[in-house]
Simulated scan of single mutants.
Amino acid sequence: MLVVRPAGPADLDALIDLAGLSGPGLTSLPKDEATLAARLRLSAASFGGEVARDAAWYTLMLEDSDDGRILGLAAVRAAIGLDRPHFSFRVITLAQYSPTIGTRFNHRALVLVNECTGWTEVGSLFLRPEARAGGAGSLLARSRYMLIGAEPQRFGETVMAELRGWFGEEGTTSPFWEGLACKFYRLPFLEADKMVSSTNGQFIVDLAPRHPIYVDLIDEDARAAIGRCHRDGEVAMAMLRREGFTPSGLIDVFDGGPTVSAPRDAIATIRGGRVFGVMIEDDVERAETALVSTGAIAGFRAIRATVSVRGDRAVLDRAGAAALGVSAGDMVRVSA
């Protein structure tokens, strides 16, 4: 059975392996052992309630309980932009008009902004290629919203996601970086990408353009990459849209990937979730498959399971209850 569970320091080898498979541009999954080890320590402390609410960063692992293999990961940051700014480019329209010649132009432009302060971020969604079928990606992605729904007061009222930007056909070169961003940072993409997660990010504002950048003046390939997600992110984008996320008008400073956002309580999985007490039976009659998670962040787990709702009770079979680590009378959240 596939189970989503909290990540901790013991998952370091698996996380390093997943980071190596992820390719360039997934900033939240750097190929740096020290950074990943620190991420796992913070995850364990976050699930254990040992850090301030706004500093929490929850990393989730998708595990096959039959053999213990880690198939993917995802993460939720409770609040961004508080201890360090979170920079993006906002795509704006500048209208210019000359009454002398009766001509009007609408120019798209990019402006560096820091607008996401206090938002919750869902991200780091990555699965092994062989696991990208059979609903594993949906389980992993939606488990983040089940986590938020378990204790919504721990998270911001707005939830956002940044998708990896477009890379060339070889999958190693970012047209947006090569055509625009590198002109300001004068670093190889991979080095700049690593510095985002291994430093406080001050270099971004130190070297960023101070004035609007007219899109028409940008290299054609870079222009085409504005707001375009990576080919491997198209499924993730579709899942985000089904949850109610919409484009925010913000793009990543380095690769031009889109940022989408949604009101926390309007996210479909959160809005449709209900809390029930657990009943356990050997044979669950009139059962339907649903997303089921524990009712609290501490010890969080999520699975796809057959469940029958009877009044204020959710009836699970013994395998489902064991995977969640719940007993009769415990509380769970269920979302179709």
Results as ranks from 00 to 15, higher is better:
V122R: 05
V122K: 01
V122P: 00
G123P: 04
G123N: 14
G123C: 15
L125Y: 10
L125E: 08
L125M: 14
L125D: 09
L125S: 10
F126G: 06
F126K: 09
F126Y: 15
L127Y: 06
L127A: 06
L127I: 05
R128V: 09
R128C: 02
R128Q: 11
P129Q: 02
P129D: 13
P129A: 13
E130C: 02
E130Q: 09
A131F: 01
A131K: 00
A131G: 05
R132N: 08
R132G: 07
R132V: 05
A133G: 13
A133H: 12
A133K: 14
G134N: 03
G135C: 06
G135T: 03
G135F: 02
A136F: 04
A136N: 03
A136C: 06
A136H: 01
A136V: 07
G137T: 10
G137L: 12
G137R: 05
G137F: 05
G137Y: 07
S138G: 15
S138Y: 12
L139G: 08
L139I: 10
L140K: 03
L140S: 10
L140T: 13
A141Q: 05
R142T: 12
R142F: 10
R142H: 10
S143C: 10
S143G: 04
S143I: 12
R144A: 08
R144S: 06
R144G: 07
R144N: 09
Y145G: 00
Y145W: 13
Y145V: 02
Y145S: 03
M146K: 14
M146P: 08
M146A: 15
M146L: 15
M146H: 15
M146D: 03
L147S: 12
L147K: 09
L147A: 08
I148R: 04
I148A: 05
I148G: 06
I148M: 14
I148W: 08
G149Q: 06
G149R: 03
G149M: 06
G149I: 04
A150I: 05
E151Y: 12
E151I: 07
E151W: 05
P152T: 11
P152A: 09
P152H: 07
Q153A: 13
Q153N: 15
Q153I: 11
R154N: 15
R154T: 15
R154I: 11
R154S: 14
R154E: 14
R154C: 15
R154Q: 15
F155T: 04
F155D: 01
F155E: 04
F155Q: 00
G156Q: 06
G156R: 02
G156Y: 04
E157R: 15
E157D: 14
E157L: 12
V159L: 01
V159A: 01
V159C: 04
V159D: 00
V159Q: 01
V159I: 12
V159M: 02
